[in-house]
Design a protein around this nucleic acid. Sequence first.
DNA 1: TTTAATTGTGTAAAATATACACAAAGTAAA
DNA 2: TTTACTTTGTGTATATTTTACACAATTAAA
Lengths: 246, 246
Amino acid sequence: MTTVANGKMTKPVKSLMAIQSEVQSSNRIALSVDCVIFGFDENKLKVLLIRSDLKKYQSKWSLLGDLVGQHEDLDAAAYRILKQRTGLDDVYLEQVHSFGSVSRHPAGRVVTVAYCSLINVRHHKLKILDNELHWHDVQSVTDLAFDHQQIFNACYQWLQKRIQEHPLGFNLLPKKFSLRDLQNLYEAILDTKMDRRNFRKKFFAMDFLIDIDEMEQDVPHRPGKLYKFNYDKYEKKKKKWVGIDF
Amino acid sequence: MTTVANGKMTKPVKSLMAIQSEVQSSNRIALSVDCVIFGFDENKLKVLLIRSDLKKYQSKWSLLGDLVGQHEDLDAAAYRILKQRTGLDDVYLEQVHSFGSVSRHPAGRVVTVAYCSLINVRHHKLKILDNELHWHDVQSVTDLAFDHQQIFNACYQWLQKRIQEHPLGFNLLPKKFSLRDLQNLYEAILDTKMDRRNFRKKFFAMDFLIDIDEMEQDVPHRPGKLYKFNYDKYEKKKKKWVGIDF
DNA sequence: TTTAATTGTGTAAAATATACACAAAGTAAA
DNA sequence: TTTACTTTGTGTATATTTTACACAATTAAA
């Protein structure tokens, strides 16, 4: 039996039969899922963290993770962990990247798969608050336990890209929202300012907003119109993007 | 000990200490890497496959995979497997996605991480040809072993998107190439035709091509100029893309 | 009724993408 | 050596998209 750590040595090509027997015995690795759960509240992008209870990382925050069960699909594990840690289900969840450095976890070899979720803070009250679970401003997230800072950074970057190509953001808003709500969301996630008129023009041109003929309530200024996102239309018109651009 | 397969049940929140002990004992899963190695030759996009030697899949082709060693970084495993199966190293390799259905592999529970590579068929002769390793037209890839068809499809889609946002394609060309070479490459990978003049205009406008003042040789028509890709300039000018577009 | 805040709207200018045709350079064959 | 063939190299007019920017209308609060 050979294992190599640096990828420079070679070993004889092994048949899948040989692999098969290994699968039964040794050569297995602990596998976890870590969830990076983004939310939006008070015009700020937030993320859910818990307090690490490993001595080594006692004062540090960490992502929501757990081991994947032997008989559990990877995606199912992500949904389970989200539910288990927060009490929430029926939310959008997407795999982002796997992290597999040998020494990334102090408890031994653990390869982890990162999943991202976007939830509406106001409309999804957390039902479980163990381990000091709560929302943190993404700006204030530094120095997480393990390699969780790296995982978080990767997920944040992923989110910024993703939200420009897919209408993820609507998951962070109430069903009915104003265009200002929508713009605040994009500005918070992309950490940028946009021109209000051009932003409107862009979204109206996409033609995925349904004017529900209601107005904002209780705002100390002229109220804006409320809209819903037309998911059905989006699914049908989804664009096949071709254009070299780097 | 509880494991759940459907993500609907919950179990008590477990401390990382508890996890730590589990890592030492049971609850480990075989982890593999599968490499989807794309190449380009005769103006066609190719992919490397080997013959599966599992009885159940005896007549089928499969991706280049192997288990990840206990003490081997995930990325290192991908590079090792590529080298082991093909004799090649020093090529671009990127993680794409992990696949973790419980029943995806007949030999038992194996979660696999897919990596993509792009290599120049002409300039990287394969040094190992075990298991009938050879290049297949991507068009002819159907009905792979295990869930490899699904993995391949995901990687092919990933590649099509990736190549429009990053100058990956230059890995598939010789160091010196003509604009026709470049266009053939994009047309093959994106499976589309483009206007020759506009294609040129676009690439010249990017300003990442270095005119090396040489011409094509041995072509039965007016020879084209040869170029190199300016990786340094690209790295510096790399664009921070902001633009909602879906 | 006045002030403060924010919504709703349009247009001109700039940048980018698209469609399209002909002369020039080489090889191959008569 | 001429002619036919193939492919390169180039420019312009048009359409589309993006950007920058200002003022009147609506509401709540003072």
